[in-house]
Design a binder for these strands. Structure first.
Length: 728
DNA sequence: AGCACGCCGACT
DNA sequence: GTCGGCGTGCTC
């Protein structure tokens, strides 16, 4: 009897074999018995007949769920690659790349449920019998034709739908989806703008490559018209009746972005993001798989969207950290895009104003084709960057007097001022406010990290720990202070310093609701507030034409963090932010307050811009043998008992060091995580590094078994993170 | 991860 | 005498 190899959703690094009377195609879902439960798995291979030498009795497949494979060979290759590269259980890999509904074993059908008006509903609409405003709107949207369930559920609350169905004004019907498989004959809805010289060069660069795999890095300053380049490079792809997959950061997926693509080509654009219902996602997934969508735009997990006729992949804002999954299968969608484009043999376009050092390095090494846009469209001027030396300054609410007077003058002129809190979880260093010197670990020559809970300093490279000193070792001043503190004082203090100015705080807490951010941004642009205090979210996607001054305060935290990526993240933030303030008629200025005005990376950023900063930073990475000139992995562990976690990682470290000589591996830790305690559990991590990616891979592959069999491995919660980007 | 089996403490 | 604590081991 044929034997099928099934990837079952359990955290085990193997697949399981089942009997079935006929062979089952790879990529088909099956229902199988597993222990005393039944699970949905994916067939990943077939063994013709049962090999009698294995001593186990195989169970049989309960049900074959799909007539045809749901996944094409490319996605199967991708799944296998993921399991291997991230050392992750194959069954869990399949779970993450399947839409939730398919994971649950739900059937895939061409028909879908939709809402339509009943006769009573029709009357109610015509005679305006329904009093609820939302209910009225809902009825109106169904006036012409049935609308699919997913869409209605997204636009109206369950209460509205429930009320209308109870009054029998609406009902569900099954409709067959219209199938559009040919969009090559699309008509441009709007005229294609004439590309600038730089844009034209970039567009030609991509288009002349043909349809084969190649990675392009489009490095274009904010406002240089990257989207226009995307639009013009995908036009011929669509003309050839091929599909385009576009990945965007979580925050970047706005109706405006989607609308821009829809307006240009007049074709339906599939959208995928985390806030959609499972059903809506599945529908887009399926439409793409059947080749009914020319363009699919989505966030991180959209990289798993199947395409019958793939033509190109684009990753916008490729440096964005939201492309890295931070739990479970910790994949990086940008890296995966490279792998997928290669397997599909289609071009890949990575775009950013502030490319990741990884991508930039690949471009400089000619592995990627480097395309650059350095002019802002329409001749808009750049925001001027300035450094404000805060050494020895008496700070008020964390701000130096000189800067306060600059703020005052901008406010007096009726302009908006943005105070930016760089509140990201940087490992805080300790600096002398008199001379700017950091407190360093003697053996590593790197700043110590301040751990608030213990009130001690810890070196994140060798693990050395010492108590907080009283004096600066360089100038003996007693004004040592930890970086990144004082944001709370700032929020209060600004109110006291500028009592007559209307201020608003924008961070992820303050704009929790669905439309809260949009509302707040509209208010800002309507000049309802004059002083804006904000965090990360302000650096992404929004424009502030009335802001003429941007103040960045806790810069030193980023420059001296134990996280070697902190300066890069900071520079990206600054650059993105600078691109969002002011406009042609009202050029902006930006002040960065620091105790280290002479810091080489900061100087490079201020005077020569991100591109130069990045090249300088790359050079430093090379000198320090840090990524992308080496490869890293992190093992994180957490448990209720700190001792247990520590012991476990100590044993893991031992296991790795037993093998390290073969691979030239370096181990740091166990170190307490920056957020040492989360949900009552203590968290520690172990850093693994090799100069070669392959060596790191083999090192982990040959040690992981041993780690998994440690008795403590089942007592603590632990995870492996390949190519970590966040060390918190 | 689930889920069962298994062996020690306080309850109807 | 049993209900239930969570340690240990297995899942084709």
């Amino acid at each position: 009897m044929p034997v099928v190899d099934v990837a079952v959703p359990v955290p085990l690094k193997q697949s399981f074999s089942y009997l079935h009377d006929t062979p089952v195609a790879t990529g088909v879902r099956v229902k199988v018995p597993f222990g005393n439960r039944t699970l949905i798995g994916v067939v990943i291979g077939n063994i013709e007949t049962q090999t009698e030498d294995t001593g186990l009795t195989l169970k049989s497949v309960i049900e074959v769920l799909d007539e045809v494979p749901l996944f094409d060979p490319t996605l199967i290759t991708l799944a296998n690659w993921l399991a291997k590269y991230y050392h992750h259980p194959i069954g869990e890999v399949w779970s993450t790349l399947m839409p939730v509904r398919l994971r649950k074993g739900m059937p895939l059908t061409d028909k879908l449920d939709a809402f339509t008006l009943t006769e009573a509903g029709q009357d109610a609409l015509e005679q305006s019998l329904v009093r609820g405003k939302k209910q009225q709107l809902c009825l109106a949207s169904l006036a012409d034709e049935p609308v699919e369930e997913g869409e209605i559920k997204q636009r109206f609350s369950p209460a509205v739908i429930k009320a209308l169905s109870e009054k029998a004004l609406i009902q569900t019907v099954r409709i067959k989806q219209e199938i559009q498989t040919d969009w090559a004959s699309y008509t441009l809805q709007e005229t294609t703008p004439v590309a600038s010289t730089e844009q034209a060069v970039a567009i030609a660069g991509v288009n002349q490559n043909g349809t084969e795999f190649r990675t392009f890095l489009l490095e274009g300053v904010t406002g240089s018209g990257k989207t226009e380049v995307y639009l013009q490079v995908i036009a011929p792809v669509l003309k050839a009746n091929r599909q385009v997959l576009i990945l965007v950061p979580e925050i970047g997926l706005t109706p405006q972005t989607v609308g821009r693509f829809e307006r240009r080509f007049g074709i339906k654009v599939g959208v995928l993001h985390s806030q959609m219902s499972d059903l809506a996602r599945l529908q887009v997934w399926q439409q793409s798989r059947r080749g009914e969508l020319g363009i699919v735009i989505g966030t991180r997990s959209a990289i798993f969207t199947p395409m019958v006729r793939p033509g190109m992949i684009i990753v916008d804002e490729e440096h964005d950290e939201s492309f890295k999954q931070q739990d479970g299968l910790r994949y990086h969608a940008r890296d995966l895009a490279v792998k997928r484009a290669q397997t599909e043999n289609v071009p890949l376009l990575l775009g950013s104003a502030t490319p990741s050092l990884e991508s930039l390095n690949n471009a400089l090494a000619k592995r990627y084709t480097h395309l650059q846009l350095s002019e802002r469209a329409g001749g808009a001027s750049h925001t001027q960057l300035k450094v404000l030396d805060s050494r020895d300054q008496p700070l008020q609410a964390g701000i130096a007097p000189g800067l306060l007077s600059v703020m005052r003058s901008h406010l007096q002129q009726g302009n908006q001022v943005l105070v930016f809190l760089n509140r990201r979880g940087y490992a805080p260093a300790v600096l002398c406010h008199h001379c700017g010197q950091t407190v360093d670990c003697k053996s590593c020559e790197r700043p110590f990290t301040y751990h608030k809970s213990q009130g001690r300093l810890q070196c994140h490279h060798c693990g050395a720990s010492k108590r907080m000193p009283n004096q600066c070792s360089a100038c003996h001043s007693t004004s040592l202070q930890t970086s990144g503190l004082g944001t709370e004082q700032l929020e209060q203090g600004l109110g006291e310093l500028f009592p007559d100015i209307k201020q608003v705080r924008i961070d992820s807490d303050a704009v929790r609701g669905k439309d809260a951010l949009v509302t707040r941004l509209d208010e800002i642009n309507a000049r309802k507030y004059q002083l804006l205090i904000g965090t990360q979210i302000l650096s992404k996607g929004h424009h502030f034409p009335h802001v003429t001054l941007v103040v960045v305060l806790d810069c030193d935290g980023a420059l001296f963090s134990a996280d070697f990526r902190a300066p890069e993240k900071f520079a990206q933030l600054i650059t993105q932010l600078a691109g969002r303030a002011g406009r042609a008629t009202k050029p902006g200025e930006m002040y960065i307050q620091t105790d280290n005005p002479g810091h080489p990376l900061l100087q490079e950023l201020i005077h020569n811009g991100f591109a130069h900063f990045a090249r300088h930073a790359l050079h430093e990475r090379k000198m320090a043998n840090l990524p992308p000139y080496s490869a890293q992995a992190v093992i994180r562990a957490e448990a209720n008992a700190a001792q247990q976690v520590h012991t476990f990682l100590q044993q893991v470290k031992q296991a790795f060091s037993d093998h390290s000589h073969q691979f030239g591996g370096y181990i740091a830790g166990p170190l307490p995580c920056l957020i040492e305690k989360r949900q009552g559990r203590f968290r520690f991590m172990l850093l693994l590094q090799c100069s070669q990616r392959a060596a790191l891979h083999n090192w982990i592959a040959s040690t992981l078994r041993q780690v998994q069999s440690l008795p403590l491995a089942t007592r603590v919660r632990w995870s492996l993170d390949i190519d970590p980007v966040d060390f918190s």
